[in-house]
Design a protein around this nucleic acid. Structure first.
Lengths: 201, 201, 201, 201
DNA sequence: TCATAAGCGAGACGGTACGTCGTGTCTTACG
DNA sequence: CGTAAGACACGACGTACCGTCTCGCTTATGA
């Protein structure tokens, strides 16, 4: 499905699209949200953007590549560390940010997910561009909380520190019960903080 | 994509397939896990099962309907309450069960997810047949723990009580970091139990 | 296409249909004239006649057999020697009779023609049941004319004595210029009679 | 069956096919002669010609259109006025030419005939491209004979002047008794010439 | 200033899956 | 037992999309 370049797996694409390319990706994103992956056709994107299929395929060798690029393009601007000054504030900020991303890109993410099974490149890209960013954020926030003395360093467990974004993603993508601000605050106050603030066993 | 009957959205399909139909769904499931949604062809399923395309389409009006039916068929038998006697044991059992389901049906679930955007019927079916079952399980387990006096009734919050299955699903489907037994035990011991056993605020 | 029984090519079918079977053939004939061979479906015939497909196929092993039987059934009643008392009258009567048959069964004949390429049985049946009957008629009429002394026996040429019906068939089936009574009289008066009444070379 | 454009029934198609298109039609014609209309599949034509179904359907919107085009393509090159110098020679030449066409295209013509019932376009095309050409030929030949003084202008009757090709077609397509050279000479010598050379009544 | 090239739109192409429909066989249940 | 009803395997139909490819046409530089 994807155009893997096995000889060059780690070569990250330029990802610095020209204005025209950004426009193509924007159209892709819009149609993707409107119609979903299966009903999205490269031809429709090209037609909508007054481009030709050759132009599309010159940049993104397959439909899946195009969708991935569109997804990355549409999500890369978020994910900046909140720095609210308190662990609770940071967690709430991260939760709000994740909720925002999810609201806009649920359909796209589902499409990308569907293709991850077949493309290690896509899977990796998804990790790097969405999951990993949130992880880094969580890590930063927790480390700062340690520095501030809010929590003990020992309670930070890489295996599960992304419970917050993870659960929110689940709620939005799988459970069809999109998370609200209240969801975030409950998760933070009733699950995460009690867990993080317990005395180390 | 799906054959919605808009006038009758809540009519649940019979879902009591004959042996032959179960066989067709089993073949579908196998090919789905092997090749993924996009590369799955109805003709291949029919051919593999020595059936004809007409037979497939008579039952499931489209490829997406077929995949949904196969998913439901493949996941509906699990999800029985564990009854280990302790909250921790129950939670670990649920976690293990979810992990098992996920290992087998990741690709299928991704395909179904992808289509949920466009079909309320599919979305509802997914909720009923996968998410809701786990929720009911969690609820039962927690209620029993309350009866046993292990936890306070007040800490049970419907908004977030499916954090356990939710996060596991996220790990498997989105984060491409499939959960292990260790993941489950950490989540239970370091997050859920501390949260549930805290004194009510 | 046809159910040839190669070991038994000359076995003529019973052709003595029951009332029910005649009804089925009548329905076939009607649908054939309405929709043509390609658009005729055995299922439609069965449905129209409140019969089942099995009933149809039990009698006529294929669609082509059915159509052939319907054609024979619909044309076998005509073709009786005219005996008008004069060669000219007989020829005009034959011409009129052929025109009548053609008007009713053009579509059917075309359908049967189309299948003749693939079935010697059908081809033979067409010869026996349509072409040959007209030939016998022509022969009788000409012989009687010889007996009456209207023409010389030597001018009767088996190779071409069916020019009259042959040309009329051509006009109706191929040339899409259906023959009229005038066509017949012109052919008789300006071509056939001059040819038949010439002195033997 | 056919793609009639009812608003534009008399618009003759370009009929100036490219080399590639001629090749596709040639393959069609060959398979048609080999297997007949019913057993001809568009996919087989495409496969044989290393083309795709889309390419076929882009040009000829249905199987019937394809067959018609192939028939026209395969028969349009013949039918040139013979000019042997005598009426008898011309008639024999026309007869031979018709016999030749029929030998090659019997199956195709039967298929086209079968479809004429449902498509005025096809019917018209058949007239223009096969029947009419022979008629024009006959007319030319007869007029030249008049100029040469061989026959009287009055004996030429448009209603029946195509008796020669008509009867030959009947013999080949309907009577399953393909005309031979002898058939032609008998028809010419014993029927047509006596008729044409008679003194006007 | 013009030509040579590079990128573009348009869209035909080979391929392949879709979903529909008709044939001819078969089974089931009714009378 | 024959029949009506209709499921079934098979396979062709005609449609749509993917990814490749050729065309001209426009620009944008280099002589």
């Amino acid at each position: 499905m994807f155009s893997d370049s096995p000889n060059n797996p780690s070569a990250s694409p330029p990802e610095c699209w020209t204005a025209r390319e950004a426009e193509l990706l924007a159209v892709t994103l819009r149609l993707l949200q409107t119609h979903g992956y299966d009903r999205l056709t490269v031809e429709a994107v090209a037609s909508e953007a007054k481009a030709s299929k050759a132009t599309m395929y010159r940049r993104w060798p397959s439909k899946a590549d195009l969708v991935l690029a569109a997804f990355i393009h549409g999500t890369k601007e978020s994910a900046v560390a909140p720095r609210t000054g308190s662990l609770r504030g940071d967690l709430l900020a991260i939760g709000a940010s994740v909720c925002q991303s999810l609201r806009e890109h649920t359909s796209t993410m589902r499409a990308v997910l569907n293709e991850m099974s077949h493309s290690s490149a896509l899977s990796a890209a998804m990790q790097d561009n969405f999951v990993h960013h949130r992880n880094v954020l969580m890590n930063e926030v927790l480390c700062e909380a340690v520095e501030r003395g809010e929590i003990d360093a020992g309670v930070i467990n890489p295996e599960i520190w992304d419970t917050l974004p993870g659960y929110l993603v689940f709620r939005s993508m799988v459970a069809d019960r999109p998370p609200t601000e209240e969801t975030v605050s409950m998760l933070v106050d009733e699950v995460l903080l009690p867990s993080l603030q317990r005395t180390r066993s």
